[in-house]
Computed example of a mutant assay.
Amino acid sequence: MGEKSLDVRDFSDVTDYYTPVDNVFVRAHLGVPDLEPAAELADFDWTLSVEGLVENPFTISLADVLALPTRKFTAVHECFGNPFVPDVPTRAVANLEWTGTPLVPLLERAKPLASARHVWLEGADTGSFDGVDGLSYLKDLPLQAAMDDVFLAHRMNGEPLTVRHGYPLRAVVPRMFGTNSVKWLTRIIVSDERPDHMFTTRFYTRVFPGETVSVPVREIDVSSKILSPQDGDQLPGGKLELIGRAWSTTEVVLVEVGVDDGPWEPVVDLEPAGVDPAWQPFTVTRELTPGEHTVRIRATDRAGRIQPPPGLRNSIHEITVTVPAVP
């Protein structure tokens, strides 16, 4: 492995609609594989196997994957958070254009058996984690979800994937947390059961408020984030010009801003959701008096979900800014 296990790197937020690749967070629990990209993507020596409970198991080359019909879409990409402290907000999020091909034609070619219920996605990253050796990174989805949602991406923002982001091929599962979007994808296994694995049943599960049963971490929560200003910034002139983003599994219909102990006020400049599962930009302008101020933001989606108070991973986002006193 080329990099330290549980590689966690976050980068300064930018206000671009598409997050520059160099600003996209990196997560690699088993380290980043040592891969040397080929001059031409199609020349890279790599294969993807589709196996398990299927009539026609097969292995496909990268050149053959690249020859499949391609499409592009934009999707928000969010880290669920540290698996050891899942309720601590990380707010590691990006908005990216993906290029690739849906998984479903490969599954249809393989012809899952009648007993098939789940699809396992396995990456090339292997190693040790939390005292367990010999692991590979593995996630699973219900068969129908895999057929409907999984996308095999080989480009990010129009360029071939970087090694740290899954070169040469990765899964992308829109509207689900990034933990399900397996990087360095090498195997697709069709099964009649879920795998009992470090990253499927031990970590990346949660119990929703008011519930008692633990479920896999999949669909993203309703969230919003202030990208500018940054926490601790000074605002010369007393003018707050806030730029933020909101996202969910469905359209965000309301974003509210609160300053200090004041009431929540709706944000007027919230862009509506488009066809793609991308984030929704919003802006806020306020005049602030000299001194320190707390600025809070929260989102509500079409399903009626509202960002909660502190204590949960998607709690309301707040920053502290200062307006210098007038000389």
Rank of each mutant, 00 (worst) to 15 (best):
S5N: 14
T19S: 14
V21W: 00
N23S: 14
H29D: 09
G31E: 01
D34C: 01
L35R: 14
L35M: 05
P37L: 00
A39S: 14
E40C: 04
L41V: 15
F44W: 11
N56K: 14
P57E: 03
L68W: 01
F80D: 06
G81T: 05
P83K: 07
D87L: 10
N95C: 14
N95W: 06
L96Q: 09
T101R: 10
K111I: 01
S115I: 03
A116Q: 07
R117V: 00
G123A: 04
G127K: 11
D130C: 02
D130Q: 06
V132T: 15
V132Y: 04
D133K: 15
G134Y: 07
K139N: 14
P142N: 03
P142V: 00
L143T: 05
L152R: 02
R155E: 14
M156L: 15
E159A: 15
P160N: 11
T162S: 12
G166W: 01
P168S: 13
A171N: 08
V173F: 11
V173R: 13
M176Q: 15
T186P: 01
I189Q: 10
T201Q: 13
T201M: 02
T205P: 05
R206L: 11
V217T: 10
V217W: 04
D221G: 00
V222H: 07
K225T: 12
I226T: 07
Q230I: 06
P236H: 13
P236S: 14
I243E: 13
A246K: 08
S248E: 02
T249E: 10
V253Q: 03
G258T: 00
V259E: 05
E271A: 15
P272H: 07
P272E: 06
A273R: 15
G274E: 06
V275N: 02
V275H: 11
A278T: 13
W279V: 02
E292R: 13
H293M: 04
I297K: 01
R298G: 01
D301C: 04
R302N: 06
I306M: 08
I306Y: 00
P308I: 01
P310K: 02
P310D: 03
L312Y: 15
N314V: 01
I316W: 14
H317W: 12
I319M: 07
P324T: 12
P327E: 14
